[in-house]
Design a protein around this nucleic acid. Structure first.
Lengths: 242, 242
DNA sequence: CGTGGCCTTGAAGACGCTCAATTCCGGTGG
DNA sequence: CCACCGGAATTGAGCGTCTTCAAGGCCACG
């Protein structure tokens, strides 16, 4: 529950990349469908890649938002962090997923932090360039709104979960979501799961032990395997937006 | 915690109104600043007003979103409702405040319900007209994004509150927010406060009794008065987006 | 071979939910 | 004018779920 990130927080190191590689990234990035190739090229020309080591911060809380970020490889967790150090992960972003769709429009500091969970490459576009590009390609607005509406619904349904659902149900929902997105083999530690479900490491461990006894999952150090996916598929358990 | 809204759910009754009155409404509506008068007129021409009685639903969960709604008078609560009937109010909208900024863009059903807390007039614009208008007035996008970013931050900080803050702190934060928006005289019942703070009526009552003993508030039936606003102004206690 | 991260388990205690009973108030109808 | 009813406010008692604190084991890696 309390955490201390003592890891380096330099903003990654520049990475050489070809225009083609970047164009290919934006080509099928989430929210960028329906953009003409010619426009995608422009986008790629404005972007630069940076590499982050495991544990490095891509951006931090209360910093003005100067860049739009898009994951090119690796895995990034986006979380909110309270004054007392409690963390709540609400997005695990991999290739093609944006880290901050809203921020660039206002530029204002937000609550969010983003941290690389593995060695990760992230594409950056300056806020100014990004906003102008979106204005030139209005289809992006609809795309962004569609994503935002899911994100808002997910946040709202999480609020309800926190109050009325027990930890076991929340964890099951997290597992279901991870199953959908990453497959049955989930390479996360209990601490990371706890931050996704909004609970403590100890409670997570205890609950996972129960699920293991029920034969729903298997787990070893830093790795969980879902054995009986059907057990998670409760129709009432809508997936989160992670 | 369990609720049963047995109130009528007809969609309000049509209300005569002048073009000028509607234009004046949109003139200083939240998110509509920076629009030329000529454009505002267009907006007003597309809008129709409807009246809702106390307890009537403006829109309900899982219904496709066909209209953009803007409150013209009265008070509307927007809330999410879980399968088990638990409710969480996350917006109290009065004149000039939109009820669904995101919905019209996708048209998809959402989790949200909106219910009139008093006799209320609401302006409706068809989703199609609204989206086209926004496309014609791109400044609206920035405005909407700015509002959404606050809403998302608020939802996220609420998630953290639910997990790590006690009911008393959540209630204090709700009271602070209501103080900022509505002034020291708050005309809400304990049940309504409970839905805002994400707790039960009983716990709300008990907590309010404690605050009353501390001399922070006074309360009578359906009415709370904040006596010592300074007690709520903890710098760590950022206001919500209500 | 030691250190640090991760997993595991126990025990205690708190917070807030649930159920239940009672009172108070305002409005409605006889 | 009075009786009744429904919504709102109170207050008490019991208890379940989780957090918290604590201690120990396991594994990988330098």
């Amino acid at each position: 529950m309390r955490t201390s990130s003592s890891t380096a927080d330099t903003k990654g190191e520049p990475l050489e990349s070809t225009l083609e590689a970047r164009a290919e990234l934006f080509q099928d990035a989430m929210g960028f469908s329906g953009i003409a190739d010619r426009e995608i090229k422009k986008l790629a020309a404005m972007a630069t890649l940076r590499r982050f080591a495991k544990g490095q911060m891509v951006f931090e809380q209360d910093q003005p938002c100067d860049y739009f970020h898009l994951v090119a490889s690796g895995l990034v967790k986006v979380y909110i962090c309270s004054a007392s150090g409690f963390r709540m992960t609400y997005l695990l972003a991999r290739r093609g997923e944006p880290l901050n769709l809203v921020g660039p429009f206002t530029g204002d500091p937000r609550f969010l932090c983003a941290e690389a969970m593995q060695a990760t490459d992230v594409a950056h576009i300056s806020r100014h360039d990004f906003v102008r590009f979106v204005a030139d390609n209005p289809i992006l607005f609809s795309n962004i709104m569609a994503i935002l509406s899911k994100a808002v619904d997910s946040a709202n349904s999480r609020i309800i979960d926190m109050v009325e659902k027990r930890v076991e149900e929340r964890l099951l929902r997290v597992l279901l979501t991870l199953l959908d997105k990453f497959g049955a083999e989930i390479r996360l530690t209990s601490a990371e799961l706890a931050e996704l479900a909004g609970t403590t490491v100890e409670t997570t461990l205890r609950t996972m032990a129960r699920l293991r006894n029920l034969g729903i999952i298997e787990s070893e150090r830093g790795q969980i395997t879902i054995i009986r996916p059907a057990s998670l598929k409760n129709p009432e358990r809508l997936p989160l937006w992670v």
